[in-house]
């Protein structure tokens, strides 16, 4: 067995007085899909941001493919770790194609024709080849998020981070994004996903991590956590999610 792709050891992060992450430990093998759940303010987004160093950890070590991320060039690290945002954060002045191309040209140094070809491929992969020349404001939220995923994929990341990718979307648009994510999981992409979509977690996740108050309270395969959680807090939280989802879709 080779080293894990990602290993997080005793990760700590504070904002001012408030300690948001208080010693996080976990590992991800290649092709793993791990889903992070937990109440708001439990530190899920901060955890993701520490992995690609959009936030600098205060303490602890994170290694990617055996390499200490703290010692890596931050831009090089981010090229290897893709990120999909809650608010899409598409570049508003660029078409879908150009959104995907920017990193290929400016970070990976592809030629014009390589860039063109690769951007086309990635948009096709998320089912948006026909919208390549649309600007973000001309796309629906679901389409924008799929462009966001294509933009991250174009960098050939070893690991893809999703920060609540569907929580800014209208319910009827969530499905198209989740199905793209499901396909990526099937293709063997390693993914660390913050989401409250139980259906996605149940079907795609290899592991589910329940984060509470800056620590991982409980972890395990989704069926185990959903059916027999050890902690009362986990149970309450998941029950509330189930009720919410039933209310939303029913």
């Amino acid at each position: 067995m080779s080293d894990p792709l990602l290993s997080v050891r005793d990760l700590r992060k504070s904002f001012g007085e408030e300690e948001v992450l208080r010693g996080i430990d976990f590992e991800m093998e290649r092709r793993d899909v791990q889903v992070l759940m937990g109440p708001s303010g439990s530190g899920k987004s901060t955890l993701l941001r520490c992995v690609n160093r959009l936030s600098e950890p205060d303490d602890g070590t994170i290694t990617l493919d055996g390499e200490d991320t703290a010692a890596m060039d931050e831009n090089d690290l981010r090229r290897q770790v893709g990120m999909v945002f809650q608010g899409f954060n598409l570049f508003a002045h660029l078409t879908a194609r150009k959104n995907v191309s920017l990193g290929l040209r400016r970070v990976r140094g592809f030629s014009k024709s390589e860039t063109e070809e690769r951007a086309e491929e990635e948009l096709e992969r998320v089912g948006l080849a026909d919208q390549a020349d649309s600007y973000p404001a001309e796309l629906s939220g679901g389409q924008q998020q799929r462009v966001g995923i294509a933009r991250a994929l174009a960098m050939d990341p070893k690991l893809l981070l999703f920060d609540e990718p569907t929580s800014a979307l209208d319910p009827e648009l969530i499905g198209e994004v989740l199905s793209v994510m499901g396909e990526l999981a099937d293709d063997g992409m390693t993914m660390l996903v913050v989401t409250h979509e139980m259906g996605f977690a149940r079907e795609a996740a290899t592991d589910l991590l329940f984060l509470d108050d800056g620590t991982i309270l409980e972890r395990g395969p989704p069926t185990q956590l959903f059916e027999s959680p050890e902690h009362e807090r986990t149970a309450t939280f998941l029950r509330r999610l189930t009720d919410l989802e039933a209310g939303q879709h029913g």
Binding site: L54, L77, G82, M83, N89, G103, R106, R151, M155
Partner: peptide, 21 residues
């Protein structure tokens, strides 16, 4: 929207390049 600069940094652009492009 500052999220766009964050997204630019997230694909590996430097701060200066993110501002520029």
């Amino acid at each position: 929207d500052p999220g766009q600069l964050r997204a630019a940094r997230a694909i590996g652009l430097s701060q200066i390049d993110g501002i520029r492009y």
